[in-house]
Simulated assay, not measured.
Amino acid sequence: MENVSSPARHHAPLVAAGILMGAGLGGFVDGIVLHQILQWHNMLSNKLPPDTLVNAKVNMYWDGVFHAAVWVMTALGLRLLWSVGHRRDVPWSGRTFSGSLVLGWGLFNVIEGLIDHTLLGLHHVYEYTADHLPADLGFLAFGLLQLLVGWLLIRRGQADTTPAAHAVG
């Protein structure tokens, strides 16, 4: 009797969609909660404090550019997710997708924290204090925790085998 192996399963397309969406949605949380609701910082608030109307308008413009960029990331992730849903070689796994969302958000936090807060010094998590380090380190620690949790969920989701095309249809 001929040994027929099961078709190969590829988790990477679902992970890629989740990472893009997670990074975009994490950026929205950052922009909406920290920039707009709490008003802890703006994109350029360490370099250009929003203490005049002109400076506030410049910061608002760059916050808008930031929101446009994370919208594009989210839309690209959604487009990838849509195409994954039609593939029989990609397991449809809630754990893998949830882990990828969390991992993407964590990547956003770590990359944005290292580049904007540390390397370029464009802004800090909480701009209106003399010591920015505790909040900036907390932001990075939260991002690292998200990376760990996301990675663990993705690893657990690798055992899931239901093809996406069967799960949604």
Results as ranks from 00 to 15, higher is better:
1 M>D: 12
1 M>A: 15
2 E>D: 12
2 E>C: 00
3 N>Q: 12
4 V>H: 01
4 V>C: 00
4 V>L: 06
4 V>R: 02
7 P>D: 06
9 R>H: 06
10 H>I: 00
11 H>A: 11
13 P>W: 02
14 L>P: 11
15 V>R: 12
15 V>S: 02
16 A>T: 09
16 A>I: 11
17 A>L: 04
17 A>V: 04
18 G>A: 06
18 G>V: 04
19 I>H: 07
21 M>K: 01
21 M>S: 05
22 G>T: 07
22 G>K: 14
25 L>Y: 06
27 G>I: 03
29 V>Y: 09
30 D>L: 04
31 G>S: 06
31 G>C: 05
32 I>V: 15
35 H>M: 13
35 H>I: 11
36 Q>G: 14
38 L>M: 15
39 Q>I: 10
40 W>A: 09
41 H>K: 11
41 H>D: 05
43 M>S: 06
43 M>D: 03
44 L>E: 14
44 L>V: 15
44 L>T: 13
47 K>Q: 13
48 L>F: 07
48 L>K: 08
49 P>F: 15
51 D>T: 14
51 D>S: 15
52 T>E: 10
52 T>G: 12
53 L>T: 14
55 N>S: 15
55 N>F: 06
56 A>E: 08
58 V>S: 05
58 V>T: 12
59 N>Q: 08
60 M>I: 01
62 W>A: 09
64 G>Y: 01
64 G>S: 08
66 F>H: 10
67 H>V: 08
68 A>F: 09
74 T>P: 01
76 L>G: 04
76 L>I: 11
77 G>A: 01
82 W>M: 08
83 S>H: 12
83 S>Y: 05
83 S>C: 00
83 S>G: 00
84 V>C: 14
84 V>Q: 06
86 H>T: 08
90 V>T: 13
96 T>A: 08
97 F>W: 05
97 F>K: 00
98 S>P: 01
99 G>F: 02
100 S>G: 12
100 S>M: 10
101 L>P: 00
102 V>I: 15
102 V>P: 09
102 V>T: 14
104 G>F: 02
104 G>T: 04
108 F>H: 13
108 F>I: 04
108 F>V: 04
108 F>A: 09
112 E>I: 09
112 E>W: 10
113 G>K: 03
113 G>A: 10
113 G>H: 05
114 L>R: 01
114 L>S: 03
115 I>H: 08
117 H>A: 10
118 T>E: 11
118 T>G: 02
118 T>P: 01
119 L>W: 15
121 G>R: 12
122 L>T: 12
122 L>V: 10
122 L>R: 13
125 V>F: 10
129 T>H: 04
130 A>V: 08
132 H>F: 11
135 A>K: 12
137 L>R: 14
137 L>C: 02
138 G>V: 03
138 G>F: 05
138 G>T: 06
139 F>Q: 02
140 L>Q: 07
141 A>D: 02
145 L>R: 01
146 Q>G: 04
146 Q>M: 14
146 Q>F: 13
147 L>T: 02
150 G>Q: 10
151 W>C: 07
152 L>N: 07
153 L>D: 14
153 L>G: 14
157 G>W: 03
159 A>T: 08
159 A>G: 07
159 A>I: 02
160 D>R: 07
160 D>M: 03
163 P>T: 02
164 A>R: 00
164 A>M: 03
166 H>A: 09
166 H>N: 10
167 A>Q: 11
168 V>E: 05
169 G>I: 04
169 G>Y: 06
